[in-house]
Simulated assay, not measured.
Amino acid sequence: MSGLRPGSVCDTTPLQRFESQSSNGEEPSSPTAASLVAAAASSTASTMPHINNNNNNNVKVDLQLPTFVGGPGNGVGSAASIVTKTRHQRGTSQIFRRIFLDLCLLSCVGLPMLGFSLWWEPYKRGFFCDDTSLKHPYKESTIRSWMLYLMCAALPVIMILVVEFFRAQDKRIRESYIGSKHKANHSAYHLCHLELPNWLLECYRKIGIFVFGLGVEQLTTDIAKYTIGRLRPHFFAVCQPVLPDHTTCDDLVNVGQYIENYTCMATDMTAKRFKDMQLSFPSGHTSFACYSMIFLVIYLQRRMHWSGTKMLRHLLQFLLLMFAWYTALTRVSDYKHHWSDVLAGAGIGLTYAIVVTSTMW
């Protein structure tokens, strides 16, 4: 015992035997977790007396782990490879598959609407000759169809594109200011080896939800129109009905009678105009305008959060609501609908706008 130098080890540890096998060219046995733990415990135990007896000496225990620890097989490397692989899996085929699926869902709403417009006939409702609510003059619409499509279809799409683009720019500026490395403006979708920006994906989602809600709202309106078949307030001015016995509502014999069998004798009467004359309830213009404008109002409230734009946001919301309100009023003043038709159309548009926007974020 006196011949031993301080700090020497009488026997080799499992880790030293592992290293000696490697230096002699022998094929070392595969290291296991148990052997590594035993090696660390043995090395620590052998140096403990030396540490206790020589407190002034600095002792370093260098335990080198095999090179396979921290290599490609560990959790970090595999997770990174999975993330990279996942990002590149969403390529062109996945994008077109998603678009095709969305178009199929939209066709479930659009095809019935097309069927109503082309082939379905509304319920033929009768009338009383002394019904004054049907004797209003015919007037052209104040809000024409092209104006309605421009304000309620094109404008929402443009506003969503603008808001999402500037949201992405504002977020990029703030992240560059604070030095953040998080790529919030990038997505995992690649089209022809080009990564699509995240704001473009957000536009696709928001516009897709808007269009689907619009289709459902219009389909609901058409179902009510063709089921009820209510006559418009300008019915007598447009139709000029004549009974099978060649009498009209001017004859006293027809006063108080409910007439279902009649023929329109107006010279400019066409099948399309006769069909439209029976689609008063509910108001399609009102439901369209209320849905689109209220959708935009809620969208701006939730997505337009730039500093210094609260007054501008509220001004835009006021103008949008006023357009919906004005459209509803003109449908009554133009004698296109009864007031109850407008009220029902506004209720349909409001309901779908709230439902769709509540599930969008």
Rank of each mutant, 00 (worst) to 15 (best):
S2H: 10
R5N: 08
G7V: 03
D11P: 00
T12F: 09
L15P: 02
R17G: 03
N24Q: 11
N24D: 09
E27W: 04
P28I: 05
L36C: 10
A38S: 11
T44Y: 15
A45Y: 12
H50T: 06
I51M: 13
N52K: 13
N53M: 11
N53F: 04
N54Y: 05
N54C: 12
V59I: 11
L65C: 01
V69T: 06
G71I: 03
N74D: 07
N74F: 02
G75L: 08
G75T: 11
V76H: 12
S78M: 13
V83T: 08
V83C: 07
R87F: 04
R87Q: 08
S93M: 00
Q94H: 02
Q94P: 02
R98A: 15
D102Q: 11
D102F: 14
L105N: 15
L105E: 15
G110V: 02
G110P: 06
L111P: 07
F116R: 09
L118V: 12
W119Y: 15
P122I: 09
Y123Q: 13
Y123E: 05
K124R: 13
D130L: 06
S133G: 03
Y138C: 04
K139G: 03
T142R: 02
T142G: 00
R144Q: 06
L150V: 00
A154H: 10
P156M: 05
L161I: 09
E175G: 07
E175D: 12
S180D: 10
S180M: 08
H182W: 12
H182T: 11
N185M: 09
H186M: 08
H190I: 15
L191Q: 02
E195R: 08
P197Y: 08
N198P: 01
W199K: 03
L201D: 01
E202L: 12
C203G: 05
R205I: 09
I207H: 12
F210R: 11
F210N: 04
F212Q: 15
V216A: 08
T220F: 10
D222Y: 03
A224R: 03
K225N: 08
V238D: 01
D250A: 09
D250V: 08
V253T: 14
V253P: 00
Y258L: 12
I259S: 04
T263H: 05
A266Y: 04
Q278T: 01
L279P: 00
H285P: 02
S287K: 09
F288V: 06
A289V: 00
C290Q: 11
S292C: 03
F295L: 08
F295W: 04
F295D: 00
I298L: 07
Y299Q: 01
Y299V: 06
Q301P: 15
W306H: 14
K310L: 10
L312H: 08
Q317R: 00
L321R: 05
F323W: 14
A324T: 05
L329E: 06
L329Y: 01
R331W: 02
V332S: 00
D334I: 01
S340E: 11
S340F: 09
V342I: 06
G345V: 01
G345D: 04
G349A: 03
L350E: 11
Y352A: 09
Y352L: 03
S358M: 06
W361H: 14
